[in-house]
Design a protein around this nucleic acid. Structure first.
Lengths: 200, 200
DNA sequence: CTTGGTTTTGAACAAGCGTTCAGTTAAACC
DNA sequence: GGTTTAACTGAACGCTTGTTCAAAACCAAG
């Protein structure tokens, strides 16, 4: 009978993924060897193959899991105002990405390390996320609440701006997470609402 | 006497750097071998060592050259208005980075591939560039032309947003470079000027 | 045509790569 | 307490890595 309680695979499996996540984020997929991951876990390289068919799949699973968790946690379209929905998105993006800096880093730095088929699957998930923001912007534009020249460009600009936070923000620094969220929300709000002068 | 005319090194040298730039950008520093670079140039791997002491220095020189060209091309602080200077910066950043997508990509993706000493030198150059923008924002805030809660954060947010353009913009697409510049300038201008509502 | 120097080749080096697998270990069941 | 089986080891596979270097190729000047 299969051993279920006290099985090491319940412990080693997550540790393999955690080690891979950490090392891939720090040094890059191509620069990390299976032996390094094994050493981090405290195991021989061969043992890793109980938990992943190969190195590429290990990377893909990390990225897929991250993207699925992101989409899962994404606030569902409520009947709140578009302004509130946009604010919610901004605060959510910053908070969620702040909790997982390694996964975020990998998810958009290691796209090129994916084989074409895996790349397409991750890209599709990423696009679903972007669409969630774009829908809010489009709804706001239709209601004349937002003034955006091109919802696609604004979507990409906002996401690039928000994701940039992970490259420098560390808890315990000069600013609290809440303060960062406040400031970014302020900037995004200005970006999408009617400007003072009224140009363009 | 040293051979000067018809020397191959004048030809091979740039070709080595061009091949390295292209391959590093496409596949990442760690994933590209010296033999791949040599094959791209049409030469044996050993010949590369006439043009670089080692692989790490080849990467560092590419990044250093890019950053120096960037700082060189940066518009000098003129006595124009802060608004004009900010607009000039935004348009410059987009145009300059658009001309060198590979170098841009490498310069911020391969920082982790640099040995500590080289990293520090590139980082210093990058900080000089950021400071150029921060100075404009600070000057504008002092003159009450801009309303920014934190010049450092706004600097990073603007640069992240602008640099994101290189990940999707391709000439010949839906939008011209000028149209992209217009839209990003519009977004940046709104971000730093007094908002309609007047919150924060 | 010979000389002199630059550039390139091609083989070699030790080390590390991802992956496989027969064999050992150890824990949970009957 | 013996049996079963998942988990892991440790060695091995063939291949690639960055780098070195003596020898060859090449080209311009004398």
């Amino acid at each position: 009978m299969a051993r279920t309680t006290g099985s090491h695979s319940d412990i080693t499996g997550p540790r393999v993924r955690a080690a891979a996540l950490k090392l891939f984020a720090r040094d890059g997929f191509a620069a990390v060897s299976m032996r390094q991951i094994a050493r981090e876990v405290g195991v021989q390289a061969g043992a890793l193959y109980n938990y992943t068919p190969d190195k590429q799949t290990l990377l893909f699973d990390l990225m897929r899991t991250h993207m699925e968790e992101l989409l899962e946690a994404l606030p569902a379209p409520a009947d709140a105002s578009v302004m509130d929905r946009l604010e919610e998105f901004v605060r959510f993006h910053i908070a969620f990405h702040h909790e997982r800096p390694d996964a975020v880093f990998i998810a958009y730095m290691e796209l090129r390390s994916l084989e074409p088929e895996n790349f397409a699957r991750i890209e599709a998930l990423r696009r679903r996320y972007e669409t969630a923001l774009e829908d809010i912007l489009a709804a706001g534009a239709a209601q004349d609440v937002f003034v955006v020249a091109d919802t696609k460009i604004t979507t990409l600009a906002v996401i690039a701006m928000l994701t940039g936070v992970t490259t420098w923000f560390r808890a315990g620094g000069r600013l609290s997470l809440g303060a960062v969220q406040d400031q970014y929300w302020d900037m995004v709000r200005r970006m999408v609402t009617r400007p003072p002068g009224g140009t363009v």
